[in-house]
Design a protein around this nucleic acid. Structure first.
Length: 257
DNA sequence: ATGGTTGCCTCGCAA
């Protein structure tokens, strides 16, 4: 069994105490991290290695930044989304570990919609789709996980009306996410859970966590060969309730070896 | 319609 997780930590430095506790207690084999908000050289590599993990890190000062942690070596790492070779933003890292091809994704937020940020998001999603399609051709078990900044369906938020017009819920955004699924990828959470209002992100503001006013925007997408082996999935709400929490909480799945 | 919060790092920007 391989236990994989994804977590937008909203600053690796600010989250290090919670991350350390969670790695020890939850003990995932593979973790996809987003929003490191630090340069690659500033990543706490020794700390992570002392907890028993290898790491592939693509950092950036102040913004973005992604990593894969794994209890096994990570091979054949790529640090950019193919098709976005000159992307100045660190939003993608991919490698092979435990016999799985794993991609860690921090998809652009895209707000405000009436700006170039939204077209950047849609372009990025088109490139992700192209790459995800190419990967399927390899017939490997694939896990593309991360903060997609996409609310797939109305039941993935508390109040769809409140999200109308937002880049996370725009029809173009949801269609682009469906185009990814339509290639043959499976949402590891939705494949095994049909309950609505299961969230992965709660805003720091307006008591969103206390009132469970969240959104489900972090996803683990599995290729058919990985989905065949899916045995469990879930959302670990525990870290979101802690002091100095990230605004996201970890999602996870288990696949048979 | 606005503001509320966090993290960066420098007092504004992104989320």
């Amino acid at each position: 069994m391989v236990k994989l997780a994804s977590w937008n930590v909203n600053s690796i430095k600010a989250r290090l105490p919670i991350l350390r506790d969670w790695l020890e207690s939850f003990a995932p084999d593979v973790v996809m991290l987003q929003e490191l908000k630090c340069q690659t050289e500033a990543f706490p590599l020794l700390e992570v290695e002392s907890l028993g993990y290898h790491a592939a890190v693509v950092g950036q000062k102040t913004y973005n930044g992604v990593a894969i942690l794994s209890k096994a070596p990570i091979e054949d790492v790529i640090e950019r989304l193919p098709g976005e070779p000159e992307d100045a933003q660190s939003r993608y890292v991919e490698g092979t570990t435990f016999g799985l091809r794993v991609g860690a994704i921090y998809l652009p937020n895209g707000n405000p919609v009436a700006s170039e940020k939204f077209s950047y998001k849609l372009d990025w999603m088109a490139h992700l789709r192209d790459h995800a399609a190419a990967l399927l051709g390899t017939e490997q078990p694939l896990v593309l996980g991360g903060d997609y900044n996409v609310i797939p369906e109305p039941e993935d938020c508390h109040d769809p009306k409140a999200w109308e017009g937002d880049a996370l819920y725009r029809p173009e955004t949801r269609a682009a996410f469906r185009r990814l699924l339509n290639l043959g990828y499976v949402d590891a959470f939705r494949a095994l859970h049909n309950e609505p209002h299961a969230y992965t992100f709660w805003d720091y503001q307006r008591g969103a966590w206390q009132n469970d006013l969240g959104i489900r925007i972090d996803h683990l997408l599995l290729s058919p060969q990985a989905a065949d082996r899916l045995t469990a999935s879930g959302i670990d709400r525990e870290p979101r309730g802690r002091e100095k929490a990230s605004d996201h909480t970890p999602i996870w799945c288990e696949v048979e070896q």
